[in-house]
Nucleic acid binder design. Structure first.
Lengths: 348, 348
DNA sequence: CTGAAAGCGCTAACAT
DNA sequence: ATGTTAGCGCTTTCAG
């Protein structure tokens, strides 16, 4: 910048103004400055700008990669991989090809960041020291978004003392954190109601026992539907691993309500592997509304979360809070919608 | 940092060392510093660190969104949307759901960045002043990646004077820029050969006339195959818009070789809309290997680019160059592979 | 192993 | 409209 100023025979303040408030600089001067910058290959340093200005102009996302990281979650896609129409080239490449819940949310975050003039800084798991990674990214941005259950709450609270933090899809753990969620209870309840009322299935099990708040809420909605229909409700969800056993023992219920689409697709594969057919022998439902469920056979009945919109909401909440650091972080809840396809017994 | 130092009764240098070279600090002291930081909610500022250190620890990607930005490209996915199996909920949401070429490459870039300890800074089109956006992101990172034909070359060259720049998929325009490409000519030539030799089609047209170097190379490969088979080769590619006309006029060739998968899927839709059937009435092929082509009917024969690997290569080239700013930027070429599915006449 | 001090490149008053 | 100047928070010799 000093070099540019010298070359254009102006002060560094003028160079600064040329970039930040072009209207404050006489056109002729501006031209000279720009020409000098061009000659010198000058690119303003965002580090210095951020330091002086007190803000970076970027938002951060800790993009934990579920497929790579979670031992348990890295397998399910073998399922849909097989259920989906495919050519000679099936195999590993398909596994990572379908966008999952996190991918679609991330897309929404990206688009909204750009639309609002922010850059998005991504960093993710994959390395052992994920806490260090989160701290690093926190130091680079004006606001931070995280996926549920990826970062210990004490770490988030620590970061939230300095910059706004929004956690996706978890129940409001602290009023220091922003939240964007979906009404899991209501949505799962109406999905279960559909099975109960329309398909007249009464013997239902819930699959998915990972102890996340999303899962708990969905299980809760499932039970509520059964109870208010005067039916007995399971005390606990089944784990994914129990399903094959169940089938082998011939103890298949009428419906398997799964905590999410990936689980449902895995379950459908297990069902098919045992020579049964969904929905004829057992209804199967998911939750999320990912693409893979749309191209599976049978097509997956599920609840669609407005994933892109949720990503956009995350950015909106973050930016709002940036403008009013004193206000309590916002908790925004979006609504999900039933998607009736084939796996519940409906016909396309 | 000053506060932390004071609270831990050490100098700021010690605080700095605690984070950057923990082994240089006595464990007891380190504990004190960390505790003080914890109490104060201290998060090291990456801006300041970047400024002092001369590097940011982040790589940048100008992630132009083809679907949003390119008027022409935003339509094609209406095509596959229709060719793909779907439920009652078809429609707009499907359009953005399938990952495209750029998405898969971006995924590779993300994963490799994280694996190598870099954060990834994303910013994208969507706003009018894309040159300003590119300049902004260039000021924040140690190296920059861009998709082909998204940024004027003079802008890239300017940026490349300060930080390594890698352009994807374009022909080496300048030796100042790094490149990661695929062998378009060879790949398209062998795909065309397949049509010629195996399916004995001789009357072929190439679809896709956007003036990108990728397209030119693919058209070149197409022509080479025809010419070396002793057949007449078209002088110019067809535009996507000409295909429906062609069909209406009953002048459908035996095969439509498309510049990429999105184009091919659109073409297949046009074919179907006119009551014809691929591959029975006309063979159709694509290029890229995106997911949508795997779940279309008929399944799309294409050339698969190793998209994730290309993304990883981009990061590798960038980082290598960071370590040797004097060496000429690398031009890395990966190979593509034929994927024979149904739309060429092969059977699954 | 710890402290002192000189910047890193830029912004934003405040002057002129 | 343009120049002066004091930091922004951290890293990094160089001493001790």
């Amino acid at each position: 910048m000093y070099d540019v100023a010298e070359r254009a025979s102006v002060s560094i303040a003028t160079v600064s103004f040329t970039y930040t408030r072009p209207d404050k600089v006489k056109p002729a001067t501006r031209e000279r400055v720009l020409a000098a910058a061009q000659d010198l290959g000058y690119v303003p340093s965002a580090s210095a700008r951020g330091l002086a200005h007190g803000r970076t102009g970027a938002l951060g996302l800790f993009a934990f990669d579920y497929l790579i990281e979670q031992g348990d979650a890295s397998r399910p896609m073998d399922g849909p991989a097989r259920s989906v129409a495919e050519g000679r080239d099936a195999g590993d490449t398909l596994i990572r090809s379908f966008p999952l819940y996190v991918d679609e949310v991330q897309r929404g975050i990206e688009l909204e960041c750009w639309a609002r003039g922010y850059a998005l800084l991504l960093n993710g798991g994959g390395r052992a020291d994920s806490e260090a990674v989160v701290a690093d990214i926190a130091g680079r941005v004006d606001g931070l978004a995280v996926f549920p259950n990826t970062v210990p709450h004490e770490v988030l609270l620590q970061i939230a003392r300095r910059i706004p933090v929004v956690e996706l899809g978890a129940e409001a753990f602290s009023d220091q954190l922003g939240h964007v969620t979906v009404d899991n209870v209501t949505a799962m309840r109406s999905l279960t109601d559909h099975l109960l009322k329309v398909h007249e299935l009464v013997e239902l099990q819930f699959v998915g026992d990972a102890p996340t708040s999303d899962n708990r809420a969905r299980f809760e909605g499932f039970r509520l539907a059964l109870i208010s229909a005067g039916l007995p409700a399971p005390q606990r969800p089944l784990s994914k691993a129990q399903v094959p056993d169940l089938i082998s023992r011939g103890a298949v219920p009428q419906g398997l309500v799964c905590c999410n689409d990936v689980t449902a697709l895995t379950v459908m594969d297990a069902v098919a592997a045992h020579g049964l057919q969904a929905p004829r022998d057992v209804a199967v439902t998911g939750f999320d509304g990912i693409l893979a469920g749309r191209v599976s056979r049978p097509m997956l009945t599920t609840v669609r979360q407005p994933m892109e919109e949720m990503g956009r909401a995350v950015v909106d909440v973050l930016i709002n809070q940036l403008g009013a650091r004193d206000r309590a972080p916002e908790h925004r809840q979006l609504s999900a919608s039933l998607v009736l396809r084939e796996s519940c017994g409906c016909t396309a």
